[in-house]
Amino acid sequence: MNDDVIKLNCPTCQATVYWNDKYPHRPFCSERCKLIDLGEWASEGHRIPGEDAQAKNDEFE
C-alpha cells in the first residue's frame, strides 16, 4: 500500500478504511455505516456541545 494513502477507522464500525476510490463512502466503510451515522444525528444521538441555538434565539424575541 502506498505511504501517501490515508488510513483511518470507520466512525461507525471501526473497520479499516483507506482514503481512496475503493471507499466511495469515506470516512465510512460502506453506505450502511454512513446511514447508521446519519440516523444517530437525526435522532440526536450525536450532538455538538454548546448552547442551544433555539434558547438563544428566544432571548431576542
Score class of each variant (00 low, 15 high):
1 M>S: 13
1 M>F: 08
1 M>G: 15
2 N>H: 04
2 N>V: 02
2 N>R: 10
3 D>Q: 07
3 D>C: 03
3 D>E: 12
3 D>K: 10
3 D>F: 09
4 D>T: 13
4 D>P: 01
5 V>N: 06
5 V>Q: 05
5 V>P: 00
5 V>S: 07
8 L>P: 03
8 L>I: 09
8 L>R: 07
9 N>M: 04
9 N>G: 03
11 P>S: 13
11 P>K: 02
11 P>A: 06
11 P>D: 09
12 T>C: 11
13 C>I: 02
13 C>N: 08
14 Q>M: 12
14 Q>I: 02
14 Q>V: 02
14 Q>H: 14
15 A>L: 13
15 A>W: 07
15 A>I: 01
16 T>K: 14
17 V>Y: 02
17 V>T: 05
17 V>M: 00
17 V>C: 02
18 Y>D: 05
19 W>I: 10
20 N>P: 06
21 D>L: 12
21 D>A: 08
21 D>V: 09
21 D>I: 07
21 D>N: 13
24 P>N: 04
25 H>W: 14
26 R>L: 11
26 R>M: 13
27 P>M: 04
27 P>G: 10
28 F>Q: 00
29 C>K: 01
29 C>E: 06
30 S>P: 01
31 E>Q: 13
31 E>P: 00
32 R>C: 03
32 R>N: 14
33 C>D: 09
34 K>R: 15
34 K>T: 05
35 L>R: 11
35 L>H: 03
35 L>Q: 09
35 L>V: 02
35 L>F: 04
36 I>E: 12
36 I>M: 08
36 I>V: 15
36 I>Y: 01
37 D>L: 01
37 D>I: 00
37 D>W: 09
39 G>I: 01
39 G>N: 13
39 G>Y: 04
39 G>W: 03
39 G>C: 06
39 G>E: 08
39 G>A: 07
40 E>S: 12
40 E>V: 06
41 W>H: 15
41 W>K: 11
41 W>M: 03
42 A>N: 12
43 S>R: 09
44 E>Y: 06
44 E>S: 11
46 H>R: 15
46 H>E: 12
46 H>T: 07
46 H>C: 06
47 R>L: 11
47 R>W: 10
47 R>E: 10
47 R>I: 13
48 I>S: 05
49 P>W: 08
50 G>Y: 05
50 G>T: 06
51 E>Y: 07
51 E>H: 04
51 E>V: 07
53 A>L: 14
53 A>N: 02
53 A>I: 10
54 Q>I: 10
55 A>Y: 05
55 A>T: 07
56 K>V: 15
56 K>C: 05
56 K>Y: 08
57 N>V: 02
57 N>D: 15
58 D>Y: 04
58 D>M: 13
58 D>S: 08
59 E>G: 02
59 E>T: 09
59 E>I: 13
60 F>P: 00
61 E>H: 02
